[in-house]
Each structure stands twice: as C-alpha cells, then as structure tokens.
Design a protein around this nucleic acid. Structure first.
Length: 506
RNA sequence: GGGUGCAUAGCUCAGUCGGUAGAGCAACUGGCUUUUAACCAGUAGGUCCUAGGUUCGAGUCCUAGUGCACUCACCA
C-alpha cells in the first residue's frame, strides 16, 4: 500500500468486509453503455423509449451529493455519464452502508430510468454492488487534474476525470484503424520487422543502445523500419506497410517524443508521385473518419485536408527566396553567414538549413515540398531528368513535417557509395557502418519502388487539434520518479513500484 | 545542453515590510428527499521541495541541488 491510499478509505474497505461485502469482487456486472441509456431516456420535453425502464449500469462514481435521505451521484463509463439517485425508502436494506461509498469507487447498479424535478436524466437505483473500492482520493472535483505532469503520469486518472481526453485517444484509434483498412483495401500487407537491430539505419538519428546477453552483442532500438521493409520488397511482397514504433535518443519537444509511431508504406512499381497521391488520400480519409470533415483546427489556424494538397518545388522555392541556386555555394554561404547559420555537417546540410530558415513560412499551409537535393537524401533515387534532385517529397501541415517519401534507390553500387559517404561525414547521427546485408539484398534486385513515412503522432495532433505530441500519446516519456527521498514518496504514492521497474539512467 | 518561471494541507491556491500557517474542495461528525461546484454547523489534516547560509527570528532574503512547466538548440 502506498501513501496515496487514504486511511479513511482503507478503513472503509475493512468495514465493507465486516459487513459481508467484498470490496473487490471477482465478477463484474452486465451493464449497458451509459451514453445509450441517456440517449434512449431522452428528456422530459421529449421522452425517449426507455423512460421507466429497468436497467443495469456500471461505472465510476465521480462524487456524492448527500441530502440525508437522498443521494445524487454522477456515474461515468467509457464515453457516457448519467446521474444516479439513491433513495432511503427504496434502498432500505443497503442504506446503512451508504457512508462506505466514496467518489472514485467503481459500482454496478440496477434501477429505473427517469428524471428529477429539474429534468436531469437519472437512474433511480434499486440495487448497488461495489465493483472495486477506490482507496486513492479522486482529483479535486471542480478543477480536476490540472498539473500536466500528473496528468501524464496518471493517465489512468486523467482519462476518466478530464472531459475530452478519452476522445482524443478514441480518435487516434479510429485514425489508425481507418488507414490500416484503406491500405488493406488497396492490397497492402501489414508486416512486422525488427525493433532490435544490429545496425540502426534508415534515418539520421541517435539510437538507443541495448545489449543482448546470449549473443554477447550490442544492439540498437530501431530509428526507422525502412531498410527491413525494402528487404521485403526484394522478397517479392510488393506492397507492405508497418505501423512502426521508432526510438530516437534525442531531445523532447512539443513535436518530439523519444518513441513515436511512424507508418511506413513501400509500394513496388510505384514512384514518388504515386506515394504523394496515396499520402493525401489516406490523410483526407483519416480526417473524415476522425472529424466527419476535412476541415481541422490546429494551433489556432484552419486547414482543409481535402486532396489534392498544394505542391511546391524545393529548388524553385529555394531560388525564389534566396535569389541563388541551391548549389551556388559562394552565394549560399554568404546568406548563411548573414543569417548566422553555422556549418556543422557539410555544405548540403548548411544549404538545407538556409532553406529551412528562409522558406519556413511557405510551409504554413498543407503543402508537399517536392524534389529534395540528392545530397541530403541518401536512400532516394535521383530524378532521371535532373540528377541533382531526388524524387523525394515531404508533407508539411502548419509548418510541421508530417510525411516524408521518395522513389527508393535500388542501385546497390550507388547505395553502397552513399552509405560510405554518409559514414565519412562523421556525423554522429550517421550509421556507424555500412549495412552490408541491405546492400546485398539490393544486389539480388529490388523493383522500382516508392516509400513513404507518415508521422502518426503528428497526424493525430493535426486531426485532433492538439498542440503537443504528449497529448496524443497515452503514456509520453517521462523521467521516472525515485523513492529515494521521503518528499517524493509523499508527492507520489506509486513511486516505489514505478521506480523499481525502471533501469537507471544511462 | 542554454534561458525564464514555478514548488505551501490529499487537490486547487492565498500568504502583505522577514515576526512563527490560511481559504475552498476532498475526508471525518451532525442536519437536510430533487441536487448537480448542493447547502448549513463542527472536527481533523503541514518536513512551507531538499541542503546550506544571512538574521534575535526565514514559507518569505541569498547560494547550491532536485523536479516540473514554458522556451531555444538538435531531431520527425
């Protein structure tokens, strides 16, 4: 038992047992969803079909308003809420036990649907069963859980005590489900590829390192599933996708969590133009699924996600904003100097930084940027008409990158050369060694293929209007609490259990 | 990693010029059969984040630390 458990409530557990009532019974009750009960009850002005009906319900009591011989208590379940009315004259036998109920308790009830004098839909209770006694005090009834950290740490409280929170995660589930169904309908196969990888490839990012004891081998949590999914294209699976949890050992922000979900789709015989179209169609459908419309409100701005989305050319935008070509090194360096941008990993990266600094505002709407410099696209195929430009696109919504896709490089020699080049930059985010097995896979021959990665967390942010990635993650990454000091134990009751499950920080 | 801010009862928060701890909610006791942030009366509840320092005296001022929020950088 932790310090979170309230002595008065623990005492009530004992009193329930003494009264012959199991505070944690083994069986639940068959209950109807509260939202349906409320819907079918209607209102006093337009009564529904189930006024006076005898029903069973289960849920969590939020609070109790005790009038002596009458108690009102709101009951919530997943997505619904109704008021319970307990009356002494109806619950004669149970009445002496009423003081053993608290806000937060889980109960099952049987009773009759009706209204109060004020017209509030009410389930007039005839039978009460406690389903689980809550010994931790619920959040303050008016303000609720306002401490953001506590909301993330105790999502299990946030979900039932903060209105609208559960809706975001229901929407997330529907978005993912819709995308999955749409891809399956188009003949794509959902697959699973390794999270534990001997070489962290497929993106530029710092990986988490772990160790496999039996193999005596350091391994990485994947930063991207890309190289494995393309192996499957070599294997002839033709159209594959994975909702891939990726792990990147980098900073946290409104848009970044160390683990995040990326949908990656690979499509043989397609090129980047097919993927652009697929991307916008999937997103439009997901928007309709989540909101019933293509209009979304994100960070105080309205966006219309109806396909097709606008396209702009990377190189043209660069020239328009900077008055010089991407590869006009002298001119670009001068601009970089004026903007105070320092070179860190070679010229192409510097020029891309200039792009990001000068073209940012052009990415404010819903827009595909198309045709990235080949130098910063090591896994993408060059445009046959324009060898310096990769057949690559990124999708931005409100300035935030949501998707990245391209025609996949399938020339094994060229891929090996680009891997070597990447490693030579000594960029800490470049892979440490060439993924020889991947190059070998290409040597067997990969058909012309296009791939895209869609940031699912960020897409959900846009579609549900959440500013922070943490608000679309049920359990965002947090520093674990330690039970070392008394102060922290007091501040958080579950710290002892939680702390013991976490490995020490590396 | 840098900057700014915050940390007081279970929760949300006050706390004046440095003078020894307050409210509402929750809990407990009593009253109340139509409330909905119910109401009325009472009781109990404090390592003022931690460790130092200044001072006759620190919740308050100073230093360091810890945690969190916001923000910048990196990243998708």
């Amino acid at each position: 038992m932790t310090d979170l458990a309230h002595p008065d409530r623990l005492d009530k557990v004992a009193r329930l047992r003494a009264a012959g009532i199991d505070p944690y019974p083994a069986r639940g009750v068959e209950a109807e969803p509260l939202a349906e009960l409320v819907r079918d009850l209607g209102s006093p002005q337009s009564p529904g079909p189930r006024v006076g009906a005898r029903v069973k319900a289960a849920g969590r009591l939020l609070s109790l308003r005790d009038f002596g011989k009458l108690i009102f208590a709101p009951l919530v379940d997943k997505g619904g809420r109704i008021q319970l009315g307990f009356q002494r004259d109806v619950l004669t036998d149970w009445w002496p036990n009423r003081k053993l109920l608290d806000g937060g308790d889980l109960v099952g009830v049987e009773g009759e649907l009706g209204f109060t004098q004020k017209g509030e839909p009410t389930l007039w209770v005839h039978e009460v069963h406690i389903l689980a006694k809550s010994v931790a005090p619920p959040p303050e009834k008016w303000h609720g859980l306002v401490d953001k950290e506590l909301r993330y740490r105790r999502r299990y409280v946030d979900l039932w005590s903060s209105p609208g929170i559960a809706d975001v995660f229901v929407a997330r589930s529907r978005i993912v489900s819709k995308i999955r169904r749409d891809l399956e309908a188009r003949g794509f196969l959902e697959v699973e590829t390794p999270v534990l990888q001997p070489i962290a490839g497929g993106a530029a990012a710092k990986p988490f390192v772990t160790h496999h004891n039996a193999l005596g081998l350091d391994m990485y949590l994947r930063i991207a599933p890309e190289l494995y999914l393309k192996r499957l294209i070599v294997g002839g699976l033709e159209k594959v996708f994975e909702f891939a949890r990726n792990f990147r050992n980098e900073g946290l922000s409104l848009r970044h969590n160390p683990e995040f979900t990326m949908l990656e789709v690979y499509w043989a015989q397609a090129d980047y133009r097919h993927q652009i179209q697929l991307t916008e169609e999937l997103i439009e459908a997901a928007a309709r699924e989540a909101n019933g419309s293509t209009h979304v409100r994100f960070r105080d701005r309205e966006y219309d996600l109806r396909a097709p989305f606008r396209r702009v050319s990377y190189m043209e935008l660069f020239e328009e904003r900077n008055g010089c070509a991407f590869r006009d090194e002298a001119a670009v360096r001068a601009i970089a100097k004026r903007l105070g941008i320092r070179e860190e990993h070679g010229y192409p990266k510097l020029a891309n930084d200039v792009f990001e600094a000068t073209c940012e505002d052009a990415l404010e709407g819903v827009v595909f940027v198309v045709g990235y410099p080949i130098e910063i696209s090591p896994l993408a195929k060059a445009d046959p008409e324009n060898p310096g430009v990769a057949e690559r696109f990124e999708l931005f919504v409100g300035g935030m990158e949501v998707a990245n896709g391209f025609s996949e490089l399938n020339d094994p020699a060229e891929q090996a050369r680009r891997f070597e080049e990447q490693i030579a930059t000594k960029d800490p985010e470049a892979p440490g060694e060439v993924d020889v097995d991947y190059v070998q896979a290409l040597e067997y021959g990969m058909p012309p293929t296009a791939g895209v990665g869609i940031g699912i967390d960020r897409l959900v942010m846009v579609l549900t209007g959440q500013d922070s990635i943490r608000d679309v993650l049920l359990f965002p990454t947090l520093r674990p609490l330690h039970a070392d000091t008394h102060g922290e134990t007091q501040a958080d009751g579950e710290s002892g259990a939680a702390g013991s499950k976490h490995a020490p920080e590396a």
